[in-house]
Structure formats: structure tokens, C-alpha cells
Design a protein around this nucleic acid. Sequence first.
DNA 1: AACTTTTTGGGCAACGTTACCCACAATCGA
DNA 2: TCGATTGTGGGTAACGTTGCCCAAAAAGTT
Lengths: 346, 346
Amino acid sequence: MEKPTPPRRVTIVDVAQHAQVSTTAVSKVLRNAYGASPAMRAKVQQAIEELGYRPNASARGMRGQTYTIGVMLPDIRNPFFPEILDGLTEALRDTPYQVLLGPGGCNDAQAEARVTEAMIDRGMDAMVLVAPISSRSRLEHIARSVPTVVVGRHGHSDAYDTVSDDDLTGAALVVGHLVSLGHRRIAHIEHAETDPDRLAEMPNAIRAEGYKRAMQAHGLGDEIDIVSTTYTQEGGYAGAQQLLARSQRPTAIFAGADVVALGVLEAVAEAGVSVPGDLSVAGYDNTTVAALGPVSLTSVDQAGHHIGAETARLLLDRIRDRERPSAQVRLSPTLVTRRTTAPPPS
Amino acid sequence: MEKPTPPRRVTIVDVAQHAQVSTTAVSKVLRNAYGASPAMRAKVQQAIEELGYRPNASARGMRGQTYTIGVMLPDIRNPFFPEILDGLTEALRDTPYQVLLGPGGCNDAQAEARVTEAMIDRGMDAMVLVAPISSRSRLEHIARSVPTVVVGRHGHSDAYDTVSDDDLTGAALVVGHLVSLGHRRIAHIEHAETDPDRLAEMPNAIRAEGYKRAMQAHGLGDEIDIVSTTYTQEGGYAGAQQLLARSQRPTAIFAGADVVALGVLEAVAEAGVSVPGDLSVAGYDNTTVAALGPVSLTSVDQAGHHIGAETARLLLDRIRDRERPSAQVRLSPTLVTRRTTAPPPS
DNA sequence: AACTTTTTGGGCAACGTTACCCACAATCGA
DNA sequence: TCGATTGTGGGTAACGTTGCCCAAAAAGTT
């Protein structure tokens, strides 16, 4: 017994025959286009349902639309991104658009380029680039071929819309909180950045800058103490080790990201220093890990859900009108205080 | 000053003209097809590079291949999945295939169906379904229209290949470990499941079954104590509360997933019970959270990377030959002991 | 020298959809 | 009543790529 011929997929032609109309008519109904009477709409709708017809995205793509939105996520592990994604997909639920994710390599510009190119090749109707590390000129190159929203990166362009959180304010929130608890020797662990482009645009750099400004604003300019490592757990571990080796130890460490703070907590625990008794620790991103009971990390919340929703809005607006001037949305972070921050030892 | 006409994308026709050959020739070169002399290959390659040509995936899709592999992830937040993904993308790096992810709604069969349909509509060359909750008949329906590998679900089918971890063994590892530490009253928190299909196939159900069998094998059949909640942190919290309210408290809790264990740790900390002094806790999945210093959870490692690599292999094999008999790969988990398990209080 | 076989290249139709047209009928305004 | 307008439906040519075919040239075989 041979396999019966694999059932060919139902096309618009089949629907047209079944409904006794032209393919043009079916297409019109599918797109809610002008020129189809209510009677015909009903007839075609019925045929569509009876046959279980689904439009072929490739064929649509050849005509210019795939109803697909590509989201480039640099690091799938970062627990902050799902929040954004939720906000985005929720806002797009009642549209015909489908979100597909491209896994960009962590901190790997080449992998990032591969994924974005692949998405452009696949005719995405729009793209969302979350915290891209690519150069600004590459971002503009991408935006020239497809409507693009850049999320979580400061510095805007005529070519693309942006949604970002005010990291300057976020850093100030942390410093303010620690100062109000009585801390003066507040250190910061940043992600080392050399590229001048990124130095001006990447959130990590902005957070470090915000830290400096806030310290100065509180008259603590002399206490500024920054360690440059990376935004990873290992980076936090190494950074904390450096800080603990200071002759004058800081009484508080502001880590530029939650993962960094976790590394700090590990190093600190190993060193036998108690948190928050001897040392306060704060993170950034308010990831789900920060909220966990055993961790309970003070952190800055970026309202990822809101970011995602705004992104969706900009996206749809731009698909509607590609020529509209580029928009920048800036959201405000909030501080979530938990059990890793307390007054300094007296 | 008007915008200059948006530069039309380079097509195979442009390449052909530029190289002074036919489009057929270019296509042959692109696909390494028979019938192109080395001289021609070189000429075409050069033209491709000079013009920066990239094939249009939609057009290719109309001819049957998109060079895209769709991966359905039920819950982007589950820190176990990125491991699989890494293994998968790494194994596919040197192939022309690109991985795109579809965000299935957490525990939402309808959302899952939407995403898989969308991927089929977009002409994916193959699909990977990670821990799908859909009914078996739906899985087979999917597999009938596109080569499919189902990951992390027991129970196989002629229609699709499977890669899964031996959850029976994994559960036995945990129970064995706890018994060898001296525990007898070992409780388990499972994810409630009623559907008979899923009861036989979902990893959570298998883990519960493995727990039971292992307890019996150790002569502890009378001590079997299962609480049914959900595989979430809240589920773990609630489950632990129930278990702590027992007149005879268990001395160890085996949570069916790491997230569940985190909820357990939270409830236990609130109740003032010390871990592992008064109570041992073990999880499953060995997620990155489990490894964190402040958590340090004993857990079962599923070798996600390996799973991903095997998935890629099966995928490529099946794309090559759709008629080959379906394959099942079963991998073995290992136990990672950390600081949440210790001998019971004497 | 007269063949067969192999190599090399190109022409063409098709994949499923939609935008642009045009044709016809019905309705309207004067 | 006649011309103009509006509503309704369909025909057709792309979009970019590839698989199937055929033709000419080159190489090999008697």
C-alpha cells in the first residue's frame, strides 16, 4: 500500500471554484478590499471555512506582504525580554500579524547581522531590534529596507523609531535610594564599552553615566567608584572581588544589571560579607530572578510589558505610513526595593 | 527634495544580466545544481558578490523551500529551553537553514495551534515542537504537512520523530539520592494532568510516575505522598504549604521542576523551616537559576544542548528523506547535587 | 567518418496571490 | 430620456525562483 498522494494545500483557486466566483473576488474578501457585495462576502467566507483555506504567506510575500513581524532578541536567556515580548504579542493579537523571533547571538555582532539579514530575506513586514549591538549605520541600513523599531537603545535616527527606558533616571533612582539610606561609598559595576557609538547609545553606558551624575548631584563626586567588567554573572563576580579588595570597601554596590548583581551576591557570600548588613546590593531590570524569595534583590523595573505595547503601536503606525517622521518613546523606570538594600553598618 | 525611489532589491535577473548568463544558470550556481561549468560558477559568484545579491525566501517558498526551520517554544521564560536552542542553532550553523522561533502561549493549546498554523502557512521546511501540550492527533496533523520533531514529550508516532529525556530515570535519580541520604518521607509535587493522552506523554506525568515507581523500588510505597498543583512558582508555594501542614511532615520534597522548587523554597523560608537542615528540596531541569549561589538547588540535568543537537540531526535527516521511518531518541539525565539536599534531621 | 554520449547553457512554465485594469449593470441627476 | 456616476465582478500580468525540457557543442566510441 503506497502513501496516497499527499493532499495538496487548498488555494485561492479552490475557494473560487467552490464558491463559484473569481479568484479576484476571493482575494478581495480576504483583504476586505473594495468591490465585493455583502452577498459575495458571505458566499466566499463560507467556502473558505468549508475548505479550511489558509493563505500562503510565501505567495503573499511575493506581492509585498507576509503579515509577519520579526523580533531580534540578542540573548534569549535575559529574563527581561519575555516581558517585552508579552506586551508586543498581546498588542498584536487582534491584528493579522504574527510575531516570529530570531535568536541573535549573545554579544555577537556577526550573528546579529545574520539574523537580521535572514529576516529581511524572508520579507518581514517590520522588525523589532531589541537592544541591538550593531553599529548605528547598520541599524539604519536595516531600517531602509524594512520598517524598524529599535528597543532599549538610546540615540535616535530619522530612519527608525525607538522605544527605550530612561536609564539616566533609573540609575538616579538607585543612587537616591542608597543615599537616603545613609550610604556614601556607593560603587558601580558597568559593562566595559569602547566603541564611541555604543558608548553614547547603549543602556549600560547610560546607566554608568547616570550613576556618575547622580553621585555628583548628591555631592558624592569624590566617592565615584566604577569597575568595568561585563554584564554577566561572571562579570559581577569578578567586579565584586575587586571592590571587596579595596582598602576602603564600598558600603553599597549598584550593579548595572540583575545578572551582574547575582554574581556580586555570590562573591560576597564567599567572602563572608553579609547582605544587607555589611553591604547593600542593587541590580537593574527587575527580572523574575530578582523577585525570587532566596534572592530578593532591590532592582529597577523597566515596565517591559509597556515597552512591548508601545513598540507594537509604533510598528503598526509605521507599516501604515512609511514616510511618517520617526518617533521616540521614552518610558520611566521605577525602583523596587527588596531585602538586599538597608542602611550601611554604623 | 523627494525621496529617491527606494532601491529595488537585487534579483536573480540582475545577477544574470551582470554576469551575462541566463537566470537558469544563476539558479544552478545558487543551488550547486548539475550543469554549470567551473568557469560559469566563478563568473556568477563574482556577480553575486558585486551586486550583494541575496535570494528572496518568499519566491523560494513558492517553489517549495524556504530554508527556514520553525521552533515552537511554549514558554519563553523557561530557562531550560535556551539550552536546547543553542544546541540546535549550533548544529545548523553550517547549513543554509535559519531558525525562527514562534512564541506559543504558556499552557495555552489555542495559542500553540495559532503559532504552528502560522509557521505552516509560512512554508517552514521543518518544525520543532518543544514540549507541546497539543493533542496527539494535532501533532500528527502538523507532521503530515511538514517534517516535525517533537521534543520533550514521551510517546511516539509514525508521523514524527521525537527527542526526549528519560524522565522515569530522572525521577529515580532524585529519589535514590534522597534515600541514600537517609530520607524516607519523600514527597512529590506534580503538575495536575487529567487528559489521558497527556497523562501518558507529558514529562511531568512521567516524572510523577517515576517517583512512585522509585519509592516502591526502595520499599517506600507507603510513604508515597503526592501533591497536585501546577508547574509554576505559585504551584510550588501552595504545594509546600500543604506539605508543611501535614501532621507528619516530609523530610524531603522532590519538586517536578525547578520553578516549583523555587516556590517551595519561598514557602519553606516563610514557615521558618531551614533548608537543608530540616528539609531537603530537589528540583528538575537544572536551569540556570538552580545554579545561582543564593539558590544552589539540587536538580536533574537534561543535557539540553545535546537534545538540541540530536533534534537538528533528525531534522536534517527527515528533510532529506520524508519517507524514512520515524526515529526516537531518548537521552539520559544526570543528577546535580547542590546545597538544598542533605541527610534528614536525626 | 559517422555515430553515440556527455557537457554546457538557456527557454519556459509554474508556484499562489494581489494590483491594476476594464466591462457591464444599476442607479442617479437633469 | 440620455449621459454620468456608482456598484459589482472578473481577466490578466506580474512578483522571484526553480524544475523540466531541449539544443548545441564537445568529447568519446566504433
